[in-house]
Design a protein around this nucleic acid. Structure first.
Lengths: 343, 343
DNA sequence: CGCTACCATGTTAGCGCTAACATAGTTTTA
DNA sequence: TAAAACTATGTTAGCGCTAACATGGTAGCG
């Protein structure tokens, strides 16, 4: 009976109408309203129309918290990235968001600031929200995090890099990307190439690229000097990176930057200093951001399919959620050397 | 009695331990565990230690969905922005996130893509999550959205612009910013100034700046021509904006762009075309993004305190949530004319 | 010493919804 | 035409947690 008396204890009574009130007003049971909203094909058309009209009339807004508790699942997807300052992650998020929202999922966004402990905390919290899936950037997690996740039974997608993933994996081979750019620089006859990165302990994908780069240089019998900046990718950092290279390796003929922000910052600073690129020094980046294609000379870089990576990751997760279809676990999205005029 | 028999009906049994299981293991009642976790000062120190040790031992992760339902509030803050492609919103979000996360709130991020109908849908969904507060970019909402929000009793913060807000308001005066830049351009003796914006019906704050700009030019007895691009702020759009100005207003001596992305795109294109800035044409932007300060010549623009805006907005919301202290409803964060070398 | 005040913990009753099972009516099938 | 199958809707019992009230113990106080 819908009108059973409340106990004498008051509970916070929000003014919002509840499912039961809609049901009473429409002359049906609560479950019918629930079905009209969540599985319309399971109620008779006439009933459905009547119910939805009542929903509209009362301004009913479903309490998703209650629904999630009852069904033990929410339409949340946890998405964890190491930074929002980097356009790369923004684009990946955009791809994810677009795809997930179309299917009625809401992204719960977490930012670790490249801190693996924070990632653990965030994941703990997000699991408490009964997320339907988790998308996280990268394969490296704390021990505690790993054990938490191996006991979790929902889809886990690790994006950005390829490797030994917990579950699903969409990304590219950063070692190989580093090698690719180093080979290009050697082919252009540069022989004194400095790698410049920022916070490589935290941005370990940049370190992987450096390792690929170093392999190629060593194989060619060359040194592979490296400078590590203590400020994460930004134009400013790139500018100071250029200056550090100039003072520490005056004979350098090329700089391989860990990303486009750094490379562009350096390129713009070089111009301000009146230097010629690539005459005085060559500059290469990584990511293929639009910015690098607008400066003159156009930046040589490696384009990663960022939005696509997000979209593909989301699609794979959705496939799993939908039908538990077995999907390919690992997808290499590849990359592309973009030869500009800066090398 | 904790061990009361389940009905014969099976429910999905997640493997996760529940509060009750922790309570049993620790030899206390469920509410004591709840308090040990959420209001530690309300339980005896010895009990607290015992309970927390049990929590740790069992790997208990609180079910936040259940907690929210029971308490009719979640530690979610709904944040709604029109775009993620624009660095401005990213920085505002960053400021919000930093401040809210420190107090244990989680941001629920929604992206309207400058669509006021989508904003309504997002807000509806978010209210269903019992958010503790709503932060939204801008003062313009659909009629339905307004009426939904006026009946909502939690803090509402509208950021970016100042005006007739629903509740709290942190932002700056875009009309005045437009006027400010126009005055600067006139003071520099430019007399044929074109305003270039993108999608001004959706990015109505850019239109407000244009209106301020136009007022000043008209007051000086000048025309105020305007070009509207159909691609939202990007370097590409800026480059094509420059070309459209050159072909349509060959005698223009200055361009006032709606934002820094457009302005920088134009500046870089002008350089590629071999033009001199500001000799051949002056260029001004809006936002004060780092990019504009790295190009040569440095971009003349207006700096808005973006992260600060986010931080301040979050702090004001928190004040309200904390103690229901009466707070100033409107905060003008101001802006600053940044005179570079491009005008 | 009896009273109030307060502290620590417990009991009870939902929060608003949906899964699982139940039921009545209708159509299909052999 | 009776059994089987399906359709539309309803009943019941929680999901896991916390608010509100309850209780028993200890301290404070004139």
């Amino acid at each position: 009976m819908s009108d059973k008396r409340r106990s004498t204890r008051r509970r916070r009574g929000s003014e919002q109408p509840t499912l039961q009130q809609v049901a009473d007003a429409a002359g049906v049971s609560a479950i019918t309203v629930s079905r009209a909203l969540n599985a319309p094909e399971r109620v008779n058309a006439a009933t459905r129309v009547k119910v939805l009209a009542t929903v509209e009339r009362l301004g009913y807004v479903p309490n998703l918290v209650a629904g999630s508790l009852a069904s033990a699942r929410s339409r949340f997807i946890a998405v964890i990235v190491p930074s929002l300052a980097n356009a790369v992650f923004i684009e990946v998020i955009h791809g994810l968001q677009e795809t997930f929202e179309r299917e009625g999922y809401q992204i719960l966004l977490g930012n670790t600031d490249y801190d693996i402990e924070r990632e653990y905390q965030l994941i703990r919290t997000f699991l408490g929200w009964s997320c339907s899936a988790l998308v996280t950037a990268g394969l490296r997690h704390s021990e505690a995090c790993r054990s938490l996740l191996t006991h979790w039974d929902k889809p886990i997608m690790e994006v950005m890099e390829l490797g030994d993933a917990l579950d699903l994996n969409v990304g590219l081979d950063h070692h190989e990307a580093g090698r690719c750019m180093a080979r290009h620089l050697l082919a252009q006859q540069y022989r004194s190439v400095v790698y410049v990165g920022a916070c490589l302990d935290r941005d370990y994908r940049a370190r992987m690229r450096f390792e690929g780069h170093r392999e190629v240089l060593h194989a060619a019998g060359l040194e592979a000097p490296m400078i590590e900046l203590d400020q994460l990718g930004s134009l400013d950092a790139g500018a100071s990176g250029l200056e550090r290279v100039l003072s520490r390796y005056p004979s350098a003929d090329a700089i391989h930057f860990a990303n486009d922000d750094l490379a562009t910052g350096a390129l713009l600073r070089a111009q301000r200093l009146g230097m010629t690129i690539p005459g005085d020094i060559a500059i290469a980046g990584f990511n293929g951001l639009p910015l690098g294609q607008h400066v003159t000379p156009r930046l040589t870089t490696i384009r990663s399919p960022r939005e696509n990576m997000g979209r593909l990751a989301a699609e794979e997760v959705l496939k799993r959620l939908d039908a538990k279809r077995v999907t390919r676990r690992r997808h290499d999205v590849g990359f592309e050397l973009l030869v500009g005029d800066s090398t």
